[in-house]
Amino acid sequence: MKSLLASIALAGAAFALPHAASAQTYPERTITVVVPFAAGGPTDTVTRLVAESMSKDLGQQVIVENVGGAGGTLGAGRVAQADPDGYTLLLHHIGMSTSATLYRKLPYDTLNAFEYIGLVTDVPMTIVARKDLEPTDLKGLIEYAKANADTVTVANAGIGAASHLCGMMFMSAIETPLVTVPYKGTGPAMTDLLGGQVDIMCDQTTNTTKQIQGGTIKAYAVTSPARLDVLPDVPTAEEAGLPGFQVGIWHGLYAPKGTPAEITERLSKSLQVALKDPNVVARFAELGTAPSPEADATPAALKAKLEAEIARWKPVIEAAGQYAD
């Protein structure tokens, strides 16, 4: 009975709360960041680390809600329709730009449904192979792949996954279509790579670094502009013979269209603070990535990135002719 009274009192108190959030007093309550993927994945991890740090700066809890499914488009669609009051945000990765082409019936208009807060990080990719594959360097791998185009297999973690995108980009760069082998998630794909059932994969450092260090798979190149501290012996694709081959799983923070500029600016400032948090920097480093520089953690930089990436991936995806709906 007491609990009943308590809950009625609680409901009553809620009615009495002042209406509508104003930009001056923002934030007044808990902020939810939607991650459009399952809990425990790399994007979820990145988000939780950043959210924890942003909570300290904003003085309000920033909590993470996982809305997985359909390559991240369900979660993005949810945020696109949310109230533009700064209390529902979206942290999405490169998939934001590629799903604009991969999905022909997207429930939102990628470029016009969101306000921008800033870039969070750009996770490098690695071109890896089963450990007994013959070629010793990237040049050799490319020759080998061209010579055996109908038997060399390229694993990926499903349509729209980072490994799928990078695999497409690789085949497009070496102008040779190879045998694509899709898996459901990174786990099974990596297992088959370890077991030597498939030949090549291109995946984020988050998933490959430890395996490369452990010698269970072979690394040919990283796709970042410079070598990585965690993998000092692995050359960049540029050095190893694929000029211009740069693919990164960039992550951005968005708000629904119509969120007041003061609020997105405030969030952007908070993001910049979080990205300098030593704990965030250290954890990102363990994952083989680094926070985006302050100049990139801004609305303008994210907007430019999204537009550029949509334009970059559209022809690659259309050439592959594979869609996710």
Binding site: S3, L4, S7, I8, L10, T32, I63, V64
Partner: peptide, 19 residues
């Protein structure tokens, strides 16, 4: 129903912090 609402809110919302 009221008791359930109070219990669930206490456990899931306050206790476990469901978003």
């Amino acid at each position: 129903s009221a008791a359930l609402a109070a219990f669930s809110t206490a456990v899931f919302s306050y206790g476990l912090g469901l978003p």
